[in-house]
């Protein structure tokens, strides 16, 4: 079963979250700039005089597609790296994905998600190789 993790996090945590995900072998993701608010409501910014309230705050959304047996570890990693403990740390949603097709090769589902150095390669004990592959992916 394939899942989609949709994580909405603070902009300033993005680098930490990405680094943490690379370290466990999650190297593919899409990142969106989004605006919104939860219970926090908004913040006050400094204007010409005093301040004014802004209700939609900038956040980033990460979309990650992965096999369901990797979901827990990935979510834990995201939460640990994104958490500040203050109101506004964000949310994570998990959805089922019907099908995945890699356009270049036509591969489907788990084959379409697999690549050298990914989280499953590491799970199979090929850690050293995975780490270097992951570094190359990052450099690319």
């Amino acid at each position: 079963m394939t899942k989609k993790i949709e994580a909405i996090i603070r902009e300033e945590r993005l680098t930490d979250v990405k680094e943490a995900l690379y370290r466990i072998g999650i190297v593919g993701m899409n990142v969106f700039e989004v605006h919104g608010h939860g219970r926090q409501g908004g913040i006050a910014l400094a204007g010409r005089t005093g301040s004014y309230r802004v209700d939609l705050l900038p956040r980033v959304q990460l979309n990650i597609i992965l096999s369901d047996h990797n979901v827990e570890k990935t979510v834990e990693t995201i939460c640990a790296a994104a958490r500040t403990g203050e109101v506004g740390d964000g949310v994570v949603f998990i959805y089922p994905v019907e099908e995945v097709i890699r356009i270049r090769s036509g591969e489907r589902d788990r084959a379409a998600l697999a690549y050298e150095g990914d989280i499953d390669t590491r799970r199979n004990g090929n850690g050293a190789h995975a780490a270097s592959a992951s570094a190359e992916t990052r450099a690319a």
Partner: peptide, 16 residues
């Protein structure tokens, strides 16, 4: 200083 007292030293305030 006026804008600092009310919030933070706003750049928009300083140039104004």
């Amino acid at each position: 200083f006026l804008s600092w007292r009310d919030n933070k030293p706003s750049v928009l305030g300083i140039v104004t």
